[in-house]
Simulated scan of single mutants.
Amino acid sequence: MAVTAALGVVVVTGISRYLGAHVAARLAADDRVGRVVGLDPNEPTAEIQRLLGGVEQVRADAASVPTVVAELDAEVVVHLSLVTSPEPGGRAAMKEHNVIGTMQLLAACQQASHLRKLVMRSSTAAYGASFRDPAVFTEDTEPRQVPRGGFARDILDVEGYLRGFRRRRPEVSATVLRFAPFIGSTADTTLTRYFAQPLVPTVLGRDPRLQFLHVDDALEALHRSVVEDHPGTYNVAGAGVLALSQAIRRAGRLAVPVFEPGLSAAATLAGGLRLGRYGLDQLDLFVHGRVVDTTRLVEEYGFEPRTTAAAFDDFIRRHADRSLVTADQLATAERAILDGIRRVRATAAKESS
């Protein structure tokens, strides 16, 4: 483990969001960091604002980031402002923010003469999720096919641009952290909302293996990436896996099996069950699952995130009082679902004969 010398100006993007705000606040409280400046085009909520007492805030959109980074004479840039799912502006706005915004930031970093380090949030979604996947992905594994989801494709583009930056500025220590899906008592994501509902849709005949990362361990990995030197690309996830069926039972929820085309028709399903809206990234994960190897992270950082099961249990503790399904109700509902499946099969067999 190589410890970075005292840092001057650290710029953190995306401080109006949970991850960016907490990383900026942790760095501002670290004596090894001289000055923390947060960039975001949006005004943080009152709750987020309370975290940012020691952080200088600059309202800056993607177009003005190059000027701001140059004027600040930044030594470290921490890029956390990626959007993981379409917002009101739709898919086009999401790609503009993720891909074009990152291009503009990297262009600014390329011209920043005092830049020593770049840390970027990425995702294990970069590997995609398909029936062709290996049992475990390492950092050197290439996706077997182009992911269907917009966020995963954005990640591939963003990491491609970063590889170009590394070639142009080899003296800058560049760290990429591919995070598994976040979970935990404080996480609020599409995934946590999926498991927090009493009825959880699953694909009939599929039981994917899932891996999670406690959001506090993501913060720790990001913090260490700034104050220590860890150039390279790292998978960041909790050890071990949970099958989707195990996770649903652990949370005390009711699985609602549907055929895969039904799950893909997310708008209809979400409207009927009030489960929220899921993109193709999440849907493919619920069908195929994804597991990554974290050996490189553990050996390089000397840090091991809590296990997938422990991270999920922390999430359950917060949502335990929201479970609307008792064990007896769960068993009764499962029997009813299985009876329904048998009737569908019997009807189909009768019609074919």
Rank of each mutant, 00 (worst) to 15 (best):
A126N: 09
Y301R: 10
A46I: 05
S353T: 15
L213Q: 05
Y161R: 07
G302R: 14
R296K: 15
P208Y: 07
V172C: 10
L199S: 02
A331H: 06
Y194I: 05
H22M: 14
L285D: 08
G262S: 13
T190E: 06
D73M: 12
S264F: 08
G164N: 12
E75S: 11
E43C: 11
A2P: 07
L7D: 01
L254A: 11
H79R: 13
G54F: 06
V77A: 00
V292I: 10
V291A: 01
D40R: 06
V99W: 01
R277P: 00
V344N: 04
R17K: 13
A62T: 03
T294C: 13
G149S: 02
D321Q: 13
A251P: 09
I48A: 08
R167I: 07
L39P: 04
G240Q: 09
H22D: 12
P231M: 15
R318Q: 12
A5C: 04
G149T: 04
F315T: 01
D73P: 07
L115I: 05
R166A: 12
P134E: 12
P261D: 05
R249K: 14
L280Q: 11
L210E: 14
H214T: 11
F137N: 09
D281G: 14
R132Q: 15
V78H: 06
R317K: 15
G164Q: 12
V55T: 08
A126G: 14
R178S: 05
V258K: 02
F165E: 04
D133L: 09
